[in-house]
Measured scan of single mutants.
Amino acid sequence: MEVRTIKVFTTVDNINLHTQVVDMSMTYGQQFGPTYLDGADVTKIKPHNSHEGKTFYVLPNDDTLRVEAFEYYHTTDPSFLGRYMSALNHTKKWKYPQVNGLTSIKWADNNCYLATALLTLQQIELKFNPPALQDAYYRARAGEAANFCALILAYCNKTVGELGDVRETMSYLFQHANLDSCKRVLNVVCKTCGQQQTTLKGVEAVMYMGTLSYEQFKKGVQIPCTCGKQATKYLVQQESPFVMMSAPPAQYELKHGTFTCASEYTGNYQCGHYKHITSKETLYCIDGALLTKSSEYKGPITDVFYKENSYTTTIK
């Protein structure tokens, strides 16, 4: 009895394709271990004539594949690729409408935090270190965002349907971005203890939790000093293409032309909904596939993004 075979390709990165001759009487799992086709788990399936010449994702289970996976995804987590594939199996079914010149995501599976993050990423200057993220990001900007969303979920250790947080998501993504040249110098002034300067680099240099107003941050924000008295913390120097200011959701007025974009969060910790506000020729609110415009805006804002380049204080 002759062994019926077909020729397929296996890959971990969709760049390096490895030619395989597979036995049609055995499952993919018996031949390769966990195997995925377009995100779908085909591990328990036997090869079919229609699979001839198709590319299958496999887990990096030998040295060659491990090197290829690390170079593309910059992670050695053995569960990463499987999590990416199972997320992709959902995100490829989502709709990605162009809204006001940006790629958004039609609401499904509690994905409003991903839509808000995706919209924000198209408006701030950011370059990702893992080629996987950078490639998928370019495709997302062009309207094909399924891979990018699935990668975000995998890097953030999230599953489809789980509630997510924009600030946490951005923080994970910033860790995989090139923020080497970003720098922030802060000064804390206390009447009792004097003053202390701190220099922050990388992710810490672009994120701040405690106030939404970048102007206020430049002037000074009140913080408790270690001595128990009130101290003032203010920005001395900022070198970065953008800054992200966050605070627990509270009524906040966004003035046209003073910011790049913002995240609105309605609801409580267990259950809520994100919308995205962007400042173009007027203010726009993007909620999944829905767009509304207004000249002014007041609502429960939790993150505001500002364009920056270089700032030095005039406070002496």
Rank of each mutant, 00 (worst) to 15 (best):
K229A: 13
Y265P: 03
G29Q: 14
Y214I: 11
V236R: 05
N187D: 08
Y297P: 01
T312L: 13
L133T: 03
K106D: 07
N61L: 12
T27F: 09
T292K: 07
D77H: 06
H48T: 08
A136G: 11
Q20N: 11
T192A: 10
N89R: 10
P34C: 12
E281P: 02
F217A: 09
V221F: 14
T116I: 05
A69F: 12
F148Q: 02
T64F: 13
M244A: 00
L290E: 09
K275N: 02
W107I: 05
L65R: 11
G29K: 09
K95L: 15
E264M: 06
G101N: 11
E125G: 09
Q270C: 11
K293A: 13
P241A: 09
V22P: 10
E296M: 06
V188K: 14
Y28M: 08
C271S: 11
V21R: 14
I124S: 02
D180G: 11
Q230G: 09
Q122T: 04
L151R: 02
G143L: 04
T19D: 08
Q195T: 11
H90N: 07
P224F: 09
R83K: 15
F9G: 08
L179E: 04
G272M: 00
T43G: 15
G164H: 02
D63R: 09
D165I: 03
L179Y: 02
K44E: 14
H48Q: 09
L88G: 05
Y284F: 11
K7P: 09
G272Q: 02
F174L: 12
G161R: 06
G202L: 01
C227R: 01
N61H: 14
Y269T: 13
L37H: 13
V221E: 06
Y155D: 04
Y252S: 05
S295N: 15
W94G: 01
Y214Q: 00
V160R: 02
S295F: 11
T35Q: 05
P130V: 10
A142W: 09
E239G: 02
G267E: 09
N100I: 07
N147Y: 10
P34M: 06
T103D: 03
Y96D: 01
Q238M: 00
M207T: 12
K158D: 01
K93Q: 10
R83S: 08
Q230M: 10
G164I: 02
Y284V: 12
A117G: 05
T232C: 09
Y265D: 01
K127M: 14
K54L: 15
V206Q: 01
S79Y: 11
Y234F: 13
Y265T: 00
I315A: 11
Q222A: 12
C182W: 07
G202P: 01
Y57N: 12
L119Y: 04
E296P: 10
K275S: 07
G53S: 10
K298H: 15
K92S: 10
A154K: 00
A250I: 15
Y265E: 01
H90A: 15
N111Q: 04
G161C: 05
L118Q: 03
S310W: 14
A146Y: 07
V160E: 02
Y311C: 09
F9W: 13
G210E: 00
K95W: 08
A87T: 05
T11Q: 05
H256M: 12
K218Q: 07
Y137T: 04
N147A: 12
H90V: 14
K93V: 09
M245E: 00
T169V: 13
M26W: 13
K127R: 13
S294G: 08
K93D: 11
S79L: 12
L59Q: 15
G164T: 03
T313K: 08
F259S: 00
T5C: 13
K183G: 04
Q222T: 13
L81R: 06
G288L: 00
P131D: 02
L283A: 00
I105D: 02
G143K: 04
L151H: 03
E308V: 11
F242E: 02
D23A: 11
A154P: 00
A262Q: 00
K275F: 00
T198N: 11
S279A: 11
L153P: 01
I152W: 02
S171E: 14
N100A: 11
Q31T: 14
L121E: 03
E52C: 12
V12W: 07
K46W: 14
H48C: 13
G164N: 04
L290I: 15
Y57K: 05
K106H: 15
A69T: 13
E204C: 07
E162P: 05
L133K: 00
I277E: 01
A262R: 00
T19F: 10
C227M: 00
Q31K: 13
I301T: 01
C112M: 04
D180A: 12
N14G: 13
L81A: 07
V12P: 09
S86L: 09
L186K: 01
K307F: 08
I315K: 12
S213V: 03
Q175L: 08
K191M: 11
L114C: 03
T226N: 11
A108T: 07
N178P: 04
A69L: 13
R83T: 06
T19A: 15
I152M: 13
D41A: 14
A69N: 07
L186I: 09
R66C: 12
L290K: 13
G82I: 11
F128C: 02
A87K: 03
Q237N: 10
N89F: 12
Q216G: 10
H176R: 12
G288I: 00
C156I: 11
K106M: 07
L186V: 13
E52V: 14
E204W: 08
T55M: 14
A262D: 00
D63C: 10
V160D: 03
Y265S: 01
Q30K: 10
V185W: 04
A154V: 06
Q98V: 11
K280T: 07
L119R: 02
E162C: 05
P130K: 03
T313V: 10
C227G: 01
N268L: 09
L235V: 10
I152R: 01
C193K: 04
T192Q: 15
N178E: 08
Q237A: 14
G101M: 05
Q31H: 06
K275E: 00
D287R: 01
S294E: 11
G257F: 01
F56W: 04
F305H: 00
M85L: 15
M207R: 06
S310H: 08
S79R: 12
A115C: 13
E296A: 14
C156Y: 04
P241Y: 03
K219W: 06
N49D: 13
Q196N: 14
S240N: 01
G33C: 04
H273P: 01
H74M: 08
N100M: 15
F9D: 14
T64H: 11
L212C: 10
Q123F: 02
N187A: 12
D38A: 12
L212F: 03
V42I: 13
T43D: 09
G29S: 09
M24L: 13
C112R: 02
Y84S: 03
F217C: 05
K201H: 13
P241N: 11
Q197W: 08
T11C: 08
P241I: 00
L200T: 11
W94T: 03
A69D: 10
H18W: 08
C112P: 05
G272H: 00
T19Q: 09
A150R: 02
C156R: 02
Y284N: 07
Y306K: 01
S279F: 01
Y234K: 10
N309C: 08
N147D: 10
P248G: 05
G267S: 07
R141M: 11
G299I: 00
S213H: 01
P78H: 13
T198R: 10
I286Q: 00
L17D: 11
Q30C: 14
G220D: 03
V12Y: 09
Q195D: 12
A150V: 02
T11H: 04
V189N: 08
E308F: 09
H273G: 01
M24Q: 11
A69Y: 08
M24W: 12
C225A: 01
W107F: 06
N178G: 08
P248D: 07
I301L: 05
G164S: 05
M244I: 05
L102D: 03
T55Q: 08
N110C: 04
K233V: 14
N309M: 13
T192R: 14
T11L: 06
G228E: 02
G143P: 03
D165M: 05
E71D: 10
Y36V: 05
L126V: 14
A136V: 02
S25M: 09
Q237L: 13
P248Q: 09
E239F: 12
Y113R: 03
E204N: 15
Q251N: 07
Y155M: 00
M207S: 07
G101H: 07
E239W: 07
E296S: 13
S104E: 04
S295G: 11
E71Y: 10
H276V: 02
C182P: 02
V67N: 14
K191V: 15
Y73Q: 04
W94N: 03
S240Y: 00
E215K: 07
Q251P: 15
S181K: 08
L212W: 03
Q222M: 15
Y269C: 09
G210W: 01
E239P: 01
G202R: 06
M245L: 08
N157G: 09
G202C: 03
V304W: 00
K307S: 15
N14D: 15
